[in-house]
Amino acid sequence: MAHFKKKQAKSGANDIPTASLPDIIFMLLIFFMVTTVLRETTVQVRTTLPKAEALTKIEQKRLVSYIWIGPLKQGLNQFGPTSIQIDDALVEDMTVIRSIMYRKWQEQPRLIVSLRVDETSEMGVVTRVQQELREAGTLRINYSSKRDISNL
């Protein structure tokens, strides 16, 4: 019993040292602050992305510019005609795309245009957008799609 008591006394206060706790938490905090991308645009069109297998990842997010194509959201579960959205605004006239994208391309020559197209869209509109992208010279595109889990 004496031996037992001695051992306990030796170890002293057995609290977890909390002095470095703020540092650890700050470390985590900084990690999440750096990785967070606050969403700056509200998407006004529905884009249910298609599923695919041959996917590649876009590593450099700052090179990416998005074009959303899909039915316009009009209230709960109601959708309008297929519309195109770039940044925060809907595109009415297709020919505007080339000047918008050309400006973006001048700022970032390695621009990747991510096409987030709703799976129910028709190819006609996608092809027209692609023609505009060719006019603008932004040739690197990416058909945004989700991983097909059913095949795995």
């Binding site: 990785t35 991510s114 060719r134 040739l139 990416n142």
Partner: peptide
């Protein structure tokens, strides 16, 4: 920041359009 972070990697099929 934990709540607001979305660590989703953009995936898709990359293509290069002809000039």
């Amino acid at each position: 920041f934990l709540v607001t972070t979305t660590i989703d990697v953009d995936t898709g099929i990359g293509m290069v359009l002809p000039p």
